[in-house]
C-alpha cells in the first residue's frame, strides 16, 4: 500500500459517506433507492481495493457477484414499483 492508494481509499470512503447520507436522510424513497444503487457500485469498487491490499484474486470474484446481485435487486425494485403503479391506476379507473 502506497500513499496514493490510501488517498484514493479516502476519496472512496468520503463518497460512501455522502451516499449514506442520502440513503438515511433522502427526502423521498426514490432518493434512497438511487443512493442504494450508487452505494452498491461503490462497495464493488471497494472490494477491488481489498483485492489490491490483501493481494488476493478472490475479492475480484466477490466484487463480480456483488455487482450482479445489486443489478438484479435494482431491476426487481423497478419492476415492483412499476407493477404497483399500474395496479393502483387500474383500481382508480375501475
Amino acid at each position: 500500500m502506497t500513499t496514493l492508494t490510501i488517498i484514493a481509499l479516502g476519496f472512496i470512503a468520503v463518497a460512501a459517506l455522502f451516499t449514506l447520507y442520502r440513503l438515511l436522510f433522502g427526502p423521498s424513497n426514490a432518493d434512497r433507492i438511487i443512493s442504494a444503487d450508487a452505494l452498491s457500485l461503490i462497495t464493488a469498487v471497494f472490494l477491488l481495493f481489498l483485492a489490491l491490499i490483501f493481494d488476493s484474486v478472490l475479492y475480484l470474484d466477490i466484487a463480480l457477484v456483488y455487482s450482479i446481485l445489486s443489478f438484479v435487486g435494482i431491476i426487481a425494485l423497478a419492476r415492483v414499483i412499476e407493477t404497483k403503479t399500474n395496479n393502483s391506476k387500474n383500481l382508480g379507473e375501475d
Binding site: I7, L9, F11, V14, A15, I34, S35, A38, I42
Partner: peptide, 11 residues
C-alpha cells in the same frame, strides 16, 4: 476514486 467522489458529491 476522484470521479467516484464527484459522483457522490453530485448525488
Amino acid at each position: 476514486a476522484i470521479f467516484v467522489f464527484l459522483g457522490a458529491l453530485g448525488l
